[in-house]
Write a protein that binds this DNA or RNA. Structure first.
Lengths: 211, 211, 211, 211
DNA sequence: GATGAATGAGCGTTCATTCAT
DNA sequence: AATGAATGAACGCTCATTCAT
């Protein structure tokens, strides 16, 4: 968690540091990122960095959490805007919101997220919370309601494990179809993405719908 | 690729190095692994390490390839032993073989494989081939045959993207059910794993079976 | 080129590093010189060294350039002080200035310069410029003027190749006479050196003077 | 000095090692040369190398001494063939013999000799002897006789210091004229070399001839 | 709060030399 | 005499972190 000093910074400076850091993490991954590069690009003193963050992990975690929060906000807003109660329509809205979010972030964020997460990431308590509070919090109420309404079969765990992998399956689908491994590709062709999303959504519907 | 010197080593010594390295990679990930620790634990001179491998990446890649080959061998053996042509029975066999393979390897291998792959890994030609020759080679013929026989709907890409995520969905299911994050847990309760495998298998069947 | 940090150092510290480095290069040559020895003798942290210089080559080049500049300055000052236009008087002044310069530097500098230059040295652009701007710049105008005045025969290349070896011939002369191989010896007996310089100067005059 | 084992080797093998070593020293200089490369190219075991030589310095010194001996032999043969007693004709013969020797050795030898001598070289007793026994032994009798005959002025030391630099002055002359630093150039144009040799020879004659 | 020079543990890697076979 | 695997000291260099100003 960044130190209070960081949040007392002028918005402009704070954003500069974040943008520069995202660029560094995007270009070189967490393990390749160098504090020297970040402070140089952000035009802050090395000592100042340690007034703002404990260390590089702290900064990295901060960025991931912030991006995740913004992603979840975008999803919730999309869900709120359409006010549907059908879980498969909701899944479609979620997938669409994710696509839009990624577009809105720019290439560096995408490149950063495309790097494998560093090992410390999985060990961190902060991250455990983050995961609990994002996908679970998102899907569980939807699933519970859909079960209550009798829309899907009565297996929360199955529904969750499938829904939470829907994004990954879409990406695998597009990768496999295109024989590509370029992460950008699959987000740039909006039509192809939406078609794949609908296909996977329908696939999931087959398996989950109440008998 | 390890140097010939490595393969000329006495089996005992060669295995010791591999086991020690797996442990180090398991505990700290590739980027956290330290050559010093490995040579110390394996009781070999630092210089000797470089008689066996070009560098740490070489050792890491060797281990991943070897483990992957053993996994694929186990799967193919299982498929051969049962000689079924039903794709969903085949998927069940595959999942079972993977479970057995992981049991046979021990916890360190699992922990090592659970770490995100380092970036260099994706750049390597060796690895690209490995990936082509493993999951794709495994699933594609099964899918093609099942489509030809009219057992599943005629969408190779969909089938592939779903089947290749079946393992991940099972693990997510067990994680979510157990509220656990210990990766080895989910492989230790064989019954629970097999039940989950059957459940996910059936789920997939719903979505893929020919109409 | 040393980094700005080096030039911001207190004079005392900067000189200590230079003196220590000259001693190390003098005793062991560039290829034998050890960074460990330098930082230990100079009582600075290894990391600090890299705040001051890119690497050992950087330090070595810095020293050579600095010494060369000081040598050339000494020569030009001597020439300016006496304002002669006779090329052989000028050569005598140059030889005298070199002698004084070497005396002012001490034995270590002499020993350092007596080592063969490392190979990288000849590849560097910085050094190419240095060479262009030292001996050539020094001798060529003198020669051109002497030819124009009709003082020496009209062969620039011959004059240059002979004049630029005058120092080496003097040293060989003194070595041979003294049956010595200690490089510093020949500069310590000022009288002998000056006699030799005059002798060689006269020798050259015989070959170069206009007929 | 190589060990007796080396001289017991079959001529063919011995020559192979020398040729390979010359190539390695030519390409990378003494400090860049790697024993690994030499034994690999010469197809001998690393351990065998130490049966033949104490270390790399031993091999290097052996090669230099051998080449020097061959050069001196070539010079003496040339002098013997023409049986002149005029010192300047003799100098011309020496310069010519050197040119021919370098041509006969091939490019690798030239490249090897073009590298600066390593520092250990100057410290070695073996080398001191070598130098004593080559240039000095060559020039001193010639000079003594020329003085006795009254052909040149009575200053042995001057004559020696000038004659022993004649080769270097020729090279400087050709370098300067061609604005080149490529060592090969100056030996490949035989005509230019011979013209320069004659020019420098005449120059020296002016300064040395008896008045 | 801001600075940036100072720090030194730690890194991966090299390679001449040894020595058991 | 020949081998080549084993060795480990030594190398230059990195870079997150500290700390005096």
């Amino acid at each position: 968690m960044p130190k209070p000093t960081f949040f007392n910074l002028k918005e402009e400076k704070r954003e500069k540091i974040e943008i520069v850091a995202i660029k560094e993490f995007a270009e070189r991954g967490f393990h390749g990122a160098r504090l020297n590069n970040i402070v140089q690009e952000a035009v802050i003193a090395k000592g100042s960095f340690y007034q703002y963050f404990c260390d590089l992990e702290d900064l990295y975690t901060h960025l991931i959490i912030k991006l995740n929060r913004r992603k979840m906000d975008a999803i919730y807003e999309e869900l709120k805007r359409h006010k549907t109660t059908d879980i498969f329509t909701q899944l479609a809205l979620i997938l669409k919101a994710v696509l839009q979010f990624i577009h809105s972030c720019g290439e560096d964020v995408l490149k950063m997220l495309n790097h494998p997460f560093p090992a410390f990431f999985y060990a961190s308590e902060e991250i455990r919370e983050l995961r609990e509070k994002s996908e679970k919090t998102l899907f569980e109420p939807l699933i519970k309601e859909a079960i209550a309404k009798g829309d899907i079969i009565d297996d929360e765990d199955l529904a969750y494990s499938v829904l939470s992998h829907s994004g990954a399956i879409i990406r695998e689908y597009l990768f496999h179809k295109a024989h590509s491994r370029d992460y950008f590709d699959i987000f740039s062709d909006e039509k192809a993405y939406n078609d794949a999303a609908e296909l996977i959504n329908n696939f999931i519907k087959q398996g989950l719908k109440a008998k």
